[in-house]
C-alpha cells in the first residue's frame, strides 16, 4: 500500500500488508498480500536518505523548493529545506505523532499543536496531519482487489481500501491502481466520508532510483481545485543507510 509521504521521503519501513484483514479466500488473501507487499517493497527500507523538490501551484502563487530528508524506522523522520534561500534551514522533525518545526529566522523550535494539524504543510496541498497519519494507515484499512485487466490501454490492478470500523481516519475510501506487470503504482484516489473524491495522487516518470525502477514524480491534485497541484520530484534516494538516532533529536534540528 502506498502512502505518498512515505514515497516522498522514504520515511518509513512499511509493514502494511501484514496487518490487513483479508477476504475468506486464502488464495486471494495471499495475492493481495503479495502484491501490496511488492508495492511496499518499492520504497521499503530500514532507513533512508532522499533529496526531493516540491513545486506548489495554486490560484495565487507558484513556488518551488528543494529539501533533503532522513528516516529511520516508521516513526522518525527529519527533513530540511535546502532551497530557496529565504527558507533554507527550516527543518521539520516527525517523531511518533509529534511534529516539530525549526525556524531559522527566529531560531525557535515549535511543536505543532493539534489545532495546526489540518493546516497546510509548507504552503502545499498536504496537511501536517497527512505527515503524521500516513504511518498509521496500514492499521486503519481493509484491502481487496476490485478490478483486474485492461483499462485505458494499460493492464492494471485496482485495490480498494476501506477504513476499519474503529479507525480514526479522515478518508471514506482509498482506491489504488497499479500496473499489472511491474506492480508500479499509477494513481491513488482519496475519497472523503461522503464518498466524494477529495484528491488524486498520480505517479509518473518511472526511472531507476536506488537500484530499481520507481516512479520519481508524484502529483497531488485537490479535487475541488483541479487547476492547483503540489508536485514532488525525486532527485536522489538511498535506502538502508546508517543513520544515528541522534539525528532525530530536537537539538539536531538546528544544526547545519
Amino acid at each position: 500500500m502506498i502512502r505518498f509521504a512515505i514515497i516522498l521521503f522514504s520515511f518509513f519501513a512499511l509493514s502494511a500488508t501484514t496487518s490487513f484483514s483479508f477476504a475468506e479466500d486464502t488464495e486471494s488473501i495471499d495475492r493481495v498480500k503479495v502484491l501490496l507487499n511488492q508495492v511496499d517493497d518499492l520504497w521499503r527500507g530500514e532507513s533512508s536518505y532522499a533529496v526531493t523538490s516540491m513545486q506548489v501551484k495554486t490560484e495565487h502563487y507558484t513556488r518551488t523548493m528543494r529539501m533533503e530528508g532522513w528516516s529511520k524506522g516508521k516513526e522518525k523522520t527529519l527533513f530540511k529545506i535546502i532551497e530557496p534561500l529565504r527558507e533554507k534551514g527550516t527543518a521539520t522533525l516527525k517523531s511518533g505523532n509529534h511534529i516539530y518545526t525549526y525556524l531559522p529566522k527566529t531560531d525557535r523550535t515549535i511543536k505543532l499543536t493539534s489545532g495546526m494539524m489540518m493546516g497546510a504543510w509548507m504552503g502545499s496541498h498536504l496537511t501536517n496531519d497527512d505527515l503524521v497519519k500516513e504511518a498509521r494507515l496500514e492499521e486503519d484499512y481493509d484491502a481487496s482487489i476490485t478490478f483486474e485487466g485492461e483499462r485505458d490501454g494499460h493492464n492494471i490492478i485496482e485495490f480498494t481500501l476501506i477504513p476499519k470500523f474503529d479507525a480514526a481516519v479522515v478518508w471514506g475510501k482509498l482506491t489504488l491502481i497499479i500496473l499489472a506487470d511491474s506492480h508500479i503504482p499509477v494513481v491513488e484516489y482519496y475519497f472523503d466520508e461522503d464518498m466524494i473524491l477529495a484528491r488524486t495522487i498520480s505517479f509518473s516518470d518511472i526511472k531507476p532510483l536506488a537500484g530499481r525502477d520507481r516512479p520519481t514524480v508524484l502529483r497531488v491534485v485537490p479535487a475541488d481545485k483541479p487547476d492547483e497541484y503540489t508536485e514532488f520530484v525525486y532527485e536522489q534516494l538511498e535506502l538502508n543507510i546508517t543513520v544515528s538516532d541522534i539525528l532525530f533529536s530536537l537539538s539536531s534540528l538546528k544544526k547545519r
Binding site: V56, T58, H60, Y61, T62, R63, P84, R86, E87, T90, T101, L103, K105, T106, R108, I110, A120, M122, G123
Partner: peptide, 16 residues
C-alpha cells in the same frame, strides 16, 4: 511570541 504562518506568495511567514 513567535508567529508561524503562511505568506500570500506561499512561503513560510515567521517572525518574533
Amino acid at each position: 511570541l513567535i508567529f508561524v504562518g503562511q505568506t500570500a506568495d506561499g512561503y513560510m511567514a515567521n517572525d518574533s
